[in-house]
């Protein structure tokens, strides 16, 4: 079902995936934002014992979406780890699994505010931002875009919808003609309403579209 959706940004056609990933067919590139690996242990260090299953789940989802698209390039859009020590806390099997994933194709770790340094031992290369077919890929959306188009993450966009007394919420992709903000991929990552202040001024209301992630498909809305 997600195959029916296309997001056009600049000259590129992007395919949003139910998992929250973006595939760029023209460049055989898969983009994934905000993995927040080792979020569980990061909270546990402060005595908040959330279940220690997030890294395993996130990696399983990651492996699944990679096997669907078999990309030649993999771009992580920042906040791949929940904090700076995340890589060191990866358990042995998770480390091997992620290293295998990173070595399978070209892998680029764009750094984020949670992980200002790229991973040291997992393979792949780090970057602050990169260009892909005329688009800039960076972690935090840039406030004023002049003559560029960007794909960013960081904000964990989400939206809610009310119909017949029911209220459904979910993560979403949100884009206008110049900018796409991707949902967070990690198993424990939440969503921030696109109505909240953090999104203010980032999108042009008339042209903005939202692709809400449902259980079995994406649903497109105008803002």
């Amino acid at each position: 079902m997600s195959n029916q959706h296309r997001i056009v940004l600049g000259d590129l056609e992007l395919v949003p995936h139910l998992s929250g990933a973006i595939f760029v067919p023209a460049h055989h590139t898969l983009i994934i934002s905000d993995l927040h690996l080792e979020q569980g242990t990061s909270l546990a260090r402060r005595g908040i014992h959330v279940p220690p299953f997030d890294t395993a789940s996130t990696l399983a989802m990651l492996a699944a979406v990679i096997s669907v698209h078999a990309p030649k390039r993999l771009v992580f859009l920042g906040d791949s780890f929940h904090d700076g020590d995340g890589e060191a806390r990866l358990q042995g099997p998770h480390f091997s699994q992620l290293r295998q994933i990173a070595l399978r194709q070209d892998t680029i770790w764009i750094v984020g505010n949670h992980d200002p340094e790229p991973p040291q031992l997992l393979g792949g290369v780090g970057a602050d931002e990169i260009m892909l077919g005329g688009l800039t890929l960076r972690h935090e959306p840039k406030r004023h875009l002049k003559d560029e188009c960007e794909i960013a993450g960081h904000l964990h966009p989400g939206c809610g919808l009310s119909l017949r007394g029911r209220h459904v919420r979910g993560k979403c992709f949100v884009a206008d003609a110049k900018r796409l903000i991707m949902p967070a991929f990690g198993a424990y990552t939440g969503a921030l309403s696109i109505r909240s202040d953090a999104f203010h001024g980032l999108f042009e209301a008339e042209t903005t579209k939202i692709w809400m992630i449902g259980k079995s498909g994406l649903h497109r809305f105008s803002l």
């Binding site: 119909l163 029911r166 459904v168 498909g217």
Partner: peptide
Amino acid sequence: DDALLAEA
């Protein structure tokens, strides 16, 4: 939920 979303 999905049926509702699709309808919406």
